[in-house]
Amino acid sequence: MASSALTAVRVVRVNATLSLGVALLVVILASLALGSNPISPAQVVQALVDPTNDPDGVVWGSRVPRTLLGLLVGFCLGVAGVVMQGQTGNPLADPGLFGVSSGASLAVVLGAFVLGHNSMSAALFLAMIGALVASVGVFAIATLSRDLANPVPLAIAGTAVSALLNAVISFLVLTNQSSLEAYRVWVVGSLSGRGLDGLPPALLVAAVGLALALVNARSLNSLTLGTELAQGLGETLWRARLVGLAAITLTTASAVALAGPIGFIGLTAPHIARAIVGGNHFRLLPASGLIGAITLLGCDVVGRVIGGQAEVPVGVVLAVLGGVAFVAIVRRTKLAAL
């Protein structure tokens, strides 16, 4: 009896892994094949084989880069969402909770204010710095409470700092046209026009963040049982918090630097992953990352094909589809207890 139950669990897991793999492959192929410039699949294959035979550089200049960006950004957000929800014990926590997105946005707006126009490469660099500075600031404020075991001071500090940064953003954006232009393009979140210049540094930062998230998995499992039980299991809470915070900051910072603030994925991917692979963070983290990547890339492809000659930014598609999906998830499954 017991062994057949175990086999059943294993079969379900294999199926889950298999279906995630297939879904990932499908969105990658769709991302390479489909776009606002309707070139034929044959032309795409030709261009992939021979980059000199790429019509107007569409495949290597646009589709390959944004496929790679989409995979990385989606994966980072999916992972960051799991760590954030696990650390705060709040199923509605979003990776932006610790001020990372606001910090990145303010840096971009300030950059446009000082430079006078919005440059994509400068924005990427500034966003990374802004995200890191903001979360270090949030952490510094939270340490004043001398109670790092408790996620509440961190969340409050994050909310307060975000509100302050957003106020400064509003002031700059309302008084300065070029800042407004930069912010308008930035704040939606998009994979368009980004190029691969920023990928290597972002990848490096993201890799460190993802590794820390994996290191944090055991602590996250213990934290699910509540802080007291976790301590009873030998968990050093402040260390678990610090590693988790660093993982969230680094993964979210690289995502936000590459694509701008993108909502819903960090919030919804962990719930879908929990429904598929269960609550063990060693499986939950990679599954949520994959679901994040699949969702982001899939929504990007949708945005590319519904806009005609122009495109609908993935941030907008996610806001519409993500909202609907989230309601569906909440209705279909009881939110898995954390």
Binding site: S36, N37, P55, M120, S192, R304, Q309
Partner: peptide, 26 residues
């Protein structure tokens, strides 16, 4: 024109660009 379609808009000999948004380097 999305960036994928930018190739369709390259017929000009001179480009006059708005002071807002992307500049030459971008």
């Amino acid at each position: 024109y999305s960036w994928e379609n930018a190739g369709k808009a390259m017929s000009g000999d001179v480009i006059m660009i708005s002071p807002e948004g992307f500049q030459i380097a971008d």
